[in-house]
């Protein structure tokens, strides 16, 4: 079950630093050990994370097999104008989980 929670305050003043905190639910199988039956467990990790704000990329991260299960990613951005912040996690199956948050900027 690939899922995510995102915490961000929905409103900010222009120029304010906004923190975006995320936890994704993912097993992050590192792919280098056998299961109980002796078969290798295939690698299945979130390999990239990307965030855009009003269509412009504000944060990108590549994740490796050493990252723990259910990874926590937090970053900040500067509130410029009202717009959508789109978060994308992509894993080895090719699936991309998307979460969209509206940031309303006053002033």
């Amino acid at each position: 079950m690939f899922n995510a929670r995102v915490t961000m305050k929905p409103e900010a003043a222009k120029g304010e630093i906004v923190e975006i905190r995320t936890v994704a639910r993912h097993p992050m199988e590192r792919g280098n050990y056998p299961d109980a039956a002796g078969r290798m467990v295939p690698r299945m990790i979130i390999h990239s994370f990307r965030a855009t704000y009003g269509g412009e990329e504000i944060f990108r991260m590549e994740l490796g097999p050493g990252v723990s299960a259910n990874p926590y990613i937090a970053f900040t951005t500067v509130a410029t104008e009202t717009g959508d912040i789109v978060l994308e996690w992509t894993d080895d199956s090719g699936f991309t989980l998307t979460r969209t948050l509206r940031l309303t900027v006053a002033g």
Binding site: V23, R25, A74
Partner: peptide, 13 residues
Amino acid sequence: DEARHPGMLWVEQ
């Protein structure tokens, strides 16, 4: 810290 607590994913489910 509920924003960071992975157990909250289960609570949400």
